[in-house]
Design a protein around this nucleic acid. Structure first.
Lengths: 227, 227, 227, 227
DNA sequence: CATGAATGAGACTTCATTCAT
DNA sequence: AATGAATGAAGTCTCATTCAT
């Protein structure tokens, strides 16, 4: 038997099922979620047509409903899928990172947020802000899985910095918000006004770094032992 | 001045028309705008039904269309009416106010924003962020009449502060955003997640003050002549 | 003030509301119910399109939903409205009628059924038989409001006839069915096979009379005191 | 004849193909017809989903279309297959049976109908009544192959009974209907209201016998020579 | 032969808008 | 000016049917 180079990518060794179709089937949900995210962020959930989501994912209307039972369930899947995993990744990033509170905040807020800002997932913030009031289940998920963990994480870092004398003693919750809210805001901006063809823009990536420096400077001002 | 017995409340001296009705007639557009603002912010433009707007304003569906030619025009009127005037008022406030840059920023950002935060007009931010991409005319108006003037105003104050040595030399645009974006964000929050029955809230009014202090501290850090 | 002849029919004395529109509004539900009955009987509930019901009632699709919240509710209304009242009327007819059991059965079964047979309401039998299993609420209503009262009524008359010696002693329930089921069946036939353009028909009205005679003859056979 | 060890159950002597699979393959159409009958009777043709028919027959959606070109053809096959054969069998039963008209009617109406009543084929009546108006071809088949032969057969028996003086002289067609329609009706009932979980039922088998006795009594009443 | 992923026509339902009253 | 009955375009979702594997 002649030596054969690697089999074509679309065939499994066990020949269980035609790969091409299976691969498509497995990829479909993600393709639909991506298309839905983009479209929901662009037009809003109510104004986005289900058929357009399907089209953007390269399938027909009916196929969408093969994978998601309703437009509303699709929305929820979009939100849970795009935020859940990132928060976990962020927490691991912090856990793996030694160093001062200042260094840590730079890692989290600049690196992690810049990456988020550049990904389509940044649009989910717009989606959540727009749709929570119409779909109350989203509120619970978002608070529990996103807001609370992220807020606690940053709060802990700030507290460590204050304890170490890096930062002066400020109200933790408010300081976390001062750090984070503008970062959320630039994500929102990128997908609303920033996506319009206008001659006024926020340079998001530059801003993220500058903002963190400015607020950290405020935190260090008058601290016993500024790094 | 001859004594005149008070006319019946619902009738004008010239007998032209009952006052109460005339008053209501004149108030209609505003009542409709208020109702529309509330409902559009609550549910989003697309998901809000025109009839519900009318109902909330205490009139019938048909009456809405006597005052606004379409739901879309109503949206535009809501936005222009609620932001246009406030910016003018803010500018006048600044012009009338002497003092250091720090004092001025406290006046504008704390006083003016707290007032906005507590008014229904705060919801317009959500509306703009949600709907600009669907109605591009809004982008132009919002930039020209709201963003640009407000940004320029704050930028000028910052520049004055830097010139006076109150603040260190920072990138103006970014610093303005660091100051302002969280304030917009708490307005958004109040009308999205904050409006849900959840046990996690931002205390907006407290935060506004704390945030301005924190960022001003960052601006003064290392300044030649911190006030 | 000159004497004025009767006002035009479309104007109310108290001028409360324009009559023409009001009259239409009040007539709509009945017109829709009639159209729905005809169409549901003709095609079956599932195969009948809501728009066609509306069209047959001379209104547009949307108007249907002004009066009935869904196609299913329309079905239920059709059934309750067309059977509920007739049973009551039948019971009153019996109560008002003196005479022997034989005479009474002739009145009820021949007169009342012939009238039903000739009315569109006869179609409801087809509807009920076809749709009970899909809409279980119908079963309860139909049994309680139609089957049970009618069966009890006829059973009582038969019992009276047996007590009076007019009829021999037979199992009441089965005898009632022997009398009634064929009458239901001709109603069904009229709206299924009988409505097709075929050269085989049941002459319903003749049959009703003959059938009652035949079964009554069977009941009297061997009775102690046949009328 | 040489002794041969029994072949494995799922394999033919000629080794052509496993028996089990071939058997299934050959049985498919019947399994599909049975499933379709049950489901169409239960939900109505329009409301029954093709996939559910397939599922109930233990095959996939696609397989259904290997055996029947469309859902509509499946319906027609269900009807023709379930009624055609039984009528022939009934006619042979009569031909093979000597005796008086009364005896004959007892055989046909009680024995044959009780058997039909207990078989799934009884549901076909519901199907025909429900669907003839939507599929006119059914009308022709049903009349030609079912109604006409059965009616003629019973009519002939009645005529024989009248000629023999067993029965009095009644209108033949109507008398046939008086005999038969209730029997059809109990079949319908069994598959509509009778299939619902309600506390009111017709005891079909008892009724069939009682009904035939009652009507025969009516036919004999006043006959010259009642058997 | 058998499967089940994919399609798209078509049905139900909603709602912005009109207009007779 | 005000109403609310009526409309019909448009959107969500279903399901008979096809076809690549």
């Amino acid at each position: 038997m002649p030596h054969r180079s690697a089999p074509p990518a679309d065939e499994l060794a066990d020949g269980s099922e035609p790969l091409q179709r299976r691969r498509r089937k497995e990829a479909r949900p993600q393709e639909l979620l991506d298309a839905a995210l983009a479209l929901f962020v662009e037009k809003g959930f109510a104004a986005a047509r289900a058929e357009e989501v399907a089209q953007r994912a390269g399938v027909s209307k009916g196929t969408l409903y093969l994978y998601f039972p309703s437009k509303e369930e699709l929305l929820k899947a979009v939100i849970t899928q795009n935020l859940g995993s990132r928060i976990v990744a962020g927490a691991e990033l912090v856990a793996a990172h030694p160093g001062t509170a200042t260094e840590l905040l730079n890692v989290i807020l600049v690196d992690w947020w810049t990456q988020l800002y550049d990904s389509p997932a940044a649009g989910v913030f717009k989606l959540v802000i727009t749709e929570v009031r119409n779909f109350p289940e989203i509120a619970g998920f978002y608070l529990r899985e996103v807001v609370q963990p992220a807020h606690d994480l940053l709060g802990a870092v700030l507290r460590r910095g204050i304890a170490a004398g890096e930062f002066r003693d400020v109200p933790i919750d408010h300081a976390v918000h001062s750090l984070v809210l503008p970062l959320i805001m630039v994500c929102l901006h990128r997908h609303s006004l920033g996506a319009c063809q206008v001659d006024w823009q926020i340079e998001g990536r530059d801003f993220i770094g500058q903002h963190v420096q400015l607020v950290l400077a405020g935190l260090r001002a008058g601290a016993p032992n500024p790094a």
